[in-house]
Design a protein around this nucleic acid. Structure first.
Length: 446
RNA sequence: GUGGCUGUAGCUCAGCUGGUUAGAGCGUCGGUUUGUGGUACCGAAGGUCGCGGGUUCGAGCCCCGUCAGCCACCCCA
């Protein structure tokens, strides 16, 4: 007997059981539907890229997190750590074929060799969508609308989209004379949600920023209320800086658009502290949070950038987009027990009751499937009670019980597994009648 | 990557200052006589106490390492 190998998965990598995989697939399907409803088209790119493509940005952080290796052809290879960089390469390479404006979505797995935490894995999926080749505010508005529609379509009850515009921050930094310390300031502001204001203030003054200036920056966090209120509060901080004024105006217009599109007030608000770590954002930036779990972090983030593919082409490609972190979202929902527990994708359980009628069962199952219903036919003629117990646990909606008595009488029993209510169908051996009856039972079952 | 906490049956945990064959609830499986589940009763299976090493007459309990999870920093989905 050879020793068994311990079954295990790598840190940050995990298996999905049916309930989790079904939940993920359902969200993916929702994302596809919403993205497509706005005209975004799917693309795909390889999981592996030439290392130079991925490290081109030169950020040491991504360098550290990259999974990299040398392949058998002695090529330096990296695994993609997001979908934006591969998209930039893709756009640069194919812009002649796709033309602008171009709207794409991309649902795929990415890998980051960073430390794990709740909702943070080393392998996870992102659901990106972007519009490139236009600087129109309509595209910005549409991005927010897509995020809103998506979160709503997923069935989230309580979520908040937080919006800001990098130009406002730029304006404030200009007015305060802190343009040189942009990185330090934005990083500090980003922490305001998690850390006490004093700690952030200390960090800022530690970088040589005068205490009075730091206080003005921190006052950003105190701004709250409606979009109009917050923007009014930002005016004096932005002062005469033109970029900042442009940002304020853009956000004001954006909120007008959101209202026109029917987004409920309160779903989207302005958070002047949102900056987003990535340095390529230049216009609006957004993050979204589950109201119940702010600690989970943003589940859907994005923004506008001036030049997506500058590393790979001379052509300037502005764009705007966002990304849903589906695994983080699902981790959050699972923790709140908000995931549906079904372990089967099929609605109908067909009991294997009378072994002599296997051919009939197969015929019935085929007819139901042909009508678009998913049917699971139990493989063995176990005791009916056990079959029903199994079916109930798996989360089927209907159980179809047809034994020799039913076959003799041309009837069938349909059982709603959740409520235990049963109905008798008279189909007289006519499959079409049976299919219709089962279908209407499914609809009725809610 | 750095620091802190944690790791006992599928799940949630108990296991007194280290001492004989490691327990409970839930779940799973089987049964409570012939064709009907989630309630009740009976019974069974399932753990080399994450893994490896050390200290000890003796370790689930102590020490070291390692792997994994959680939290913070960092960064982000």
């Amino acid at each position: 007997m050879p020793p068994v190998i311990t079954p295990r998965t790598l840190k940050g990598f995990r298996d999905l059981l049916p309930a989790q995989a079904l939940a993920r697939e359902q969200v993916l399907q929702t994302a596809r539907q919403v993205y497509r409803s706005y005209g975004f088209a799917p693309i795909d790119t390889p999981a592996l890229e030439y290392l130079e493509i991925l490290t081109g940005k030169g950020s040491e952080e991504t360098d550290k997190q990259l999974y990299r290796f040398t392949d058998h052809g002695n090529r330096q290879v990296g695994m993609r750590f997001d979908l934006t960089v591969p998209f930039a390469r893709f756009a640069a390479q194919h812009i002649g074929a796709i033309g602008t404006p171009f709207k794409r979505y991309h649902l795929a797995t990415v890998w980051r060799g960073e430390n794990t935490q709740r909702g943070r894995y080393r392998e996870f999926m992102q659901c990106d969508f972007d519009t490139i080749g236009t600087t129109s505010p309509v595209a910005d508005l549409e991005t927010v609308l897509v995020v809103h529609d998506l979160l709503e379509a997923i069935g989230l009850e309580r979520f908040t989209i937080r919006l800001n515009d990098r130009r406002i921050l730029s304006g404030i930094l200009q007015t305060l004379g802190l343009t040189e310390q942009t990185t330090v300031v934005l990083r500090g502001l980003d922490k305001l949600g998690k850390q006490p204001a004093e700690a952030v203030a200390r960090e800022l003054t530690g970088h040589g920023i005068p205490a009075a200036t730091a206080d003005r920056l921190l006052s950003l966090a105190g701004l709250s209320g409606t979009a109009t209120d917050v923007l009014a509060g930002l005016e004096p901080l932005v002062g005469a800086a033109e970029v900042g004024q442009a940002g304020i105006k853009a956000l004001a217009n954006l909120f007008t658009g959101l209202a026109a599109a029917g987004v409920p007030a309160g779903r989207v608000l302005i958070d002047p502290v949102i900056a987003r770590g990535l340095d390529y954002y230049t216009g609006i930036v957004l993050e979204s949070f589950l109201d119940e779990m702010p600690g989970l972090g943003s589940i859907c983030s994005g923004g506008r950038y001036d030049n997506l593919a500058g590393l790979y082409t001379k052509q300037q490609l502005p764009g705007v987009g966002a990304s849903l972190g589906i695994d983080r979202l699902l981790a959050g929902l699972e923790e709140c027990d908000q995931l549906e527990g079904a372990e089967t994708p099929a609605d109908i359980f067909l009991a294997h009751f009378d072994h002599a009628h296997v051919a009939d069962y197969l015929r019935i199952a085929a007819a139901l499937r042909a009508a678009g219903m998913a049917v699971d036919f139990f493989p063995e003629p176990k005791k009916l009670g056990q079959q029903l117990k199994w079916a109930g646990k798996k989360g089927f909606r209907l159980a179809l019980v047809i034994g020799s008595d039913e076959f003799a009488g041309g009837t069938a029993q349909v059982k709603h597994l959740a409520t235990q209510q049963a109905a008798t169908i008279n189909w007289h051996g006519d499959l079409a009648v049976l299919v219709d009856a089962v279908h209407s039972q499914l609809e009725a079952g809610g």
